[in-house]
Design a binder for these strands. Structure first.
Lengths: 126, 126
DNA sequence: CACCTGTATCGATAGGCGTCAACATAGGCA
DNA sequence: TGCCTATGTTGACGCCTATCGATACAGGTG
């Protein structure tokens, strides 16, 4: 494990704290390169499943942007399926997880959410 | 065909021109319902493929948010595959198409892009 | 009309993915 | 130590989908 893996949409930048730079410019700025598209698509894909989207929203809207699995696992699928989807969200860099005693808590990465939002920025709509 | 079909992320609202209301609140506001997630996931899924993301970006970044297929079809896959992906983007409500003489032009729906952006809005980041 | 180019559709195929039951692992508690 | 709960992993199954070649359709040009 370790935290050597970098979040897909972001690259750590500079030693001044938690600065990050988005992987890609807004979709409307210029055509994305193949590499950029590969990276960004991974995140969109992760949110492209209704169950995952609900899980993500449940975590993101929970107090402090963090929630125990037990708080959010009522989405109509079996427990292994919930676990599977949370893993996918983690692999996509949208969530992080931490075990605290009996329970495992998942937390959103606000900077990633912001980066995705910027991707969908409009140029200068009239 | 006809334009009876409503864009997935938006619902026409009121007779005052092009007003639309987003299908769902920001992800962080409250846990999405199953129905909301179903709708929103359809759009994320459409952007969850690298080829489609490049095609979408190519159209969105093109002059006037519109591009001929011939201008954007150089993404490393066959012509039928390009056509297939453009159709998917159209079905997801992200693009519209119009034939003008020999060529077919695809155009982005700015309001849909904006709605997706709002979905990823942060609450009140410090 | 015949021909060429641009785009869409069809049919087939291989791989990806969501889902579950069964099992494994981790931590708390008696 | 043994048991219970919470969560993750494994293996299997069926569906969805990205891709292609072949073909069809549309529109321009001669």
């Amino acid at each position: 494990m370790s935290n050597a893996k970098v979040l897909p949409l972001l690259e750590p930048e500079g030693p001044e704290g938690q600065d990050v730079v988005p992987c890609c410019p807004p979709l409307t700025e210029r055509p994305m390169t193949a590499a950029e598209a590969e990276t960004a698509a991974r995140m969109f894909k992760a949110l492209g499943d209704p169950v995952r989207l609900r899980l993500f929203s449940a975590v993101a809207s929970h107090e402090d942007g963090e929630a125990c699995v037990c708080d959010i696992s009522d989405v109509g699928v079996s427990q292994p399926t919930v676990s599977h989807h949370l893993k996918k969200l983690k692999e996509a860099g949208l969530l992080t997880s931490e075990r605290r005693g009996t329970w495992v808590y998942y937390r959103v990465e606000p900077s990633v959410l912001a980066a995705m939002g910027k991707l969908l920025t409009l140029p200068a709509a009239a």
